[in-house]
Nucleic acid binder design. Structure first.
Lengths: 214, 214
DNA sequence: CGACCTGTTGATTCTGCTCAATCAACGTGG
DNA sequence: CCACGTTGATTGAGCAGAATCAACAGGTCG
């Protein structure tokens, strides 16, 4: 079921400058390109490799038996994913917008385990942060926090790019996509953000954004 | 700020039969007793030891700047907690009902890191499971899932013990304690559970409980 | 006994979901 | 080129569910 096309020529250029010390002790591999909505692994697949994102965005999601989808995280350049406690993936990973991934083969070289631990702990920390976010009752607060996180993550550019569409944001924040729209409108009306385009949001009042998050 | 009283006599009896292979490669320590509501570590404390629960229940919680509390997990016998990606604790740990804890000193013996990784991954898996739970819109579903989890965790006894009070459950499920009460009433009215006492719930119809969880 | 804490229940308000219409952007095919 | 269908996003109206505010019951402890 895994749709994936492989590019090597362009990939290697991307490879040089990105994930820094994260892959120390692990054999680097070539970069594989996953077009938008391609599945990287599915729920129930055997646990295997870890992946580093070189470019693009990946969503990690779980499907419940009643058909609902919960996105447990978005992975962007430098992020490592694929950790699983069991021998089966409990969540699936899909490319959001066309993503380049590098596989980390975990050979048993010394020092590897502690690096893996560090990465797993970072994942844990992120998941807990999102737990806090879902604990917030208000949809506006969730949206504001999400934007603040993206702002942080993208290095403080005034313009935040939304690689994913509204439904993805909704399933990440645990609200409907209509409510995502309304939350954006709420922020827009208060002159806190401006929608430059459908997927580019300018942060006009960062302080106000943070004060909403609380 | 850490209120803790130390018991050794009773502790050692508990120590023999509990955490199985989890502490391989780590020096065992004596058991410390934390009375109800005692702080084990606080938000902002320096990251240090890991803890194994010998008996009782511990809550891991985060306080937001607006005063809200989110409980990210309950730890019971055999569980290991204290993992942190940073050098500062992002969450605090408190005894719920009087808990006995054993400290794991992480000396750098070989094989330790991979054990730690396994434990961290289990923590990650649990946190993701709770994320799914908070993604559920309905309070009744959250409550039902919580009870089903406890049922599982406590070995399938028909009678589930709630070590924590309603406010703790509420902050864990991201709802108010009034809603916790109402959700229990909902399940009670449908003859799915029975409240033997304020903190002991008998599961009358396990299938129905699971079907609510979806 | 009274003060206090925890839990339950009721009444009201309000937030966000559901259903539905509309709009803009895009691609296709005549 | 335009008519048409599709997809993603926005907006509106009505409604259901949970929060909030408030009253009250039962238990514990001084």
């Amino acid at each position: 079921m895994h749709i994936q096309s492989t590019f090597r020529a362009t990939a290697t250029t991307h490879a040089s400058g990105v994930p820094s010390g994260a892959i120390a002790g692990l054999r680097p591999a070539s970069v594989t390109f996953y077009p938008a909505d391609a599945t990287i692994y599915a729920q129930g697949d055997a646990t295997g490799a870890l992946y580093v994102v070189e470019f693009g965005t990946v969503r990690i999601c779980c499907i419940t038996s009643d058909g609902r989808r919960q996105i447990t995280g978005f992975m962007t350049a430098g992020d490592v994913f694929g950790f699983e406690a069991d021998d089966e993936h409990q969540s699936s990973a899909e490319s959001v917008d066309g993503a380049g991934l590098r596989v980390l083969h975990s050979d048993e070289s010394p020092g590897t385990a502690s690096h893996l631990l560090a990465m797993a702990l970072r994942g844990l920390s992120r998941t807990q942060h999102q737990l806090m976010l879902l604990g917030c009752r208000s949809a506006n607060v969730r949206m504001a926090s999400f934007l603040a996180d993206l702002f942080e993550q993208q290095g403080g550019d005034k313009v935040v790019h939304l690689a994913m569409q509204r439904a993805d944001i909704a399933d990440y924040l645990g609200i409907t996509f209509e409510t995502v729209s309304r939350a954006l409108r709420y922020l827009k009306d208060r002159r806190i953000i401006r929608l430059k385009s459908i997927s580019d949001i300018e942060i006009l009042d960062h302080d106000a954004l943070l004060s909403i998050c609380d």
